[in-house]
Write a protein that binds this DNA or RNA. Structure first.
Length: 265
DNA sequence: TTCCCTATCACACTCATACG
DNA sequence: CGTATGAGTGTGATAGGGAA
């Protein structure tokens, strides 16, 4: 049975038996995911990592990444994710007087926490809750509990979760070269580079002498051409990796740029 | 038949420009 | 630097083609 239970707001139980599920690309809120069974493959700007049963994975908001949920041969992919929305974080920050003091150095979209008995037990205690209706206050308490345990395991993360600043203006060229594989709209790209949409487009034109979408498409197709020709990958393997949602359009635009169908090289 | 890939089409999004 | 607007294009769903 394929399911994603959102019965408890902000706490998600996932179970996927048959197929990999490719998650979306733009992380809106911080979250902490506990993998019960199966594997989770995460690709961010820099690297691809695979996590397995028992792993605790913290992921950060305002990052681009791809999630693939992979079941085992005889077990579904199962996980529980606690999402920390802005309200919860603000409230916690005030209540316990924990505040952001300096920028967090790491630029990875996801971080694996070292195994921790308390956190693992915490996730076990969540399981029964998915079968009953919970008062809002209790949900809020459980989220606070998760946050407290998270900060206990990795105190430095306070500089991630309590950083309420918007993304600053960053080097556009570096950012684009790192993130061109993610298929998100220009508004999000503009936000992530710390610019308004208009400024984003103007800066982009200055650096690349091309409009954002034309550059993105060209860059992705060149990458596809390289992967197919040099790495002997099949079109059906690469199109999704490179941010094309459908192979039909991938095939069409490939032919438009290179003059031949992707399968013909 | 299934598995890949290609062609087509409607429309949401982007581009370019103008303007405050 | 932000916003508005019409023109134009990219996108993804769907149907269809061809090979095994």
């Amino acid at each position: 049975m394929e399911q994603e239970t959102t019965k408890i707001p902000g706490i998600v139980y996932s179970s996927f038996e048959t197929q990999k599920v490719i998650g979306e690309h733009f992380i809106l809120e911080h979250g902490l995911c506990y993998i019960i069974s199966g594997n989770l493959k995460v690709t961010d700007a820099g690297q691809t990592r695979i996590f397995g049963s028992g792993d605790l994975v913290f992921y950060r908001k305002n990052f681009l990444s791809k999630f693939t949920k992979i079941p085992n041969e005889n077990e579904p992919f199962r996980s529980i994710t606690v999402v920390f929305d802005r309200d919860i974080l603000m409230q916690y920050s005030q209540q316990y007087n924990v505040v952001y003091d300096k920028p967090y150095a790491l630029k990875d979209a996801v971080l694996q926490l070292k195994n921790d008995e308390l956190l693992e037990n915490f996730y076990q205690t969540l399981l029964p809750y998915f079968n009953s209706n919970l008062p809002e206050q209790l949900i809020s308490l459980k989220k606070q509990e998760a946050l407290m345990l998270l900060l206990q395991v990795n105190p430095d993360l306070k500089n991630v979760v309590f950083d309420f600043n918007q993304p600053g203006k960053i080097d556009l060229e570096v950012f684009m070269q790192q993130n061109f594989k993610f298929n998100v709209d220009l508004k999000k790209l503009a936000f992530l580079t710390g610019r308004s949409l208009a400024t984003f487009k103007r800066d982009f034109e200055k650096i690349f002498q091309m409009s954002p979408n034309r550059w993105l498409q060209k860059r992705r197709l060149e990458e596809a051409h390289y992967l197919i020709k040099e790495k002997n990958k099949r079109p059906s393997d690469v199109y999704h990796e490179l941010g094309f949602e459908s192979i039909s359009h991938f095939s069409y635009s490939f032919k438009k740029l290179f003059g031949v169908n992707p399968s013909a090289i």
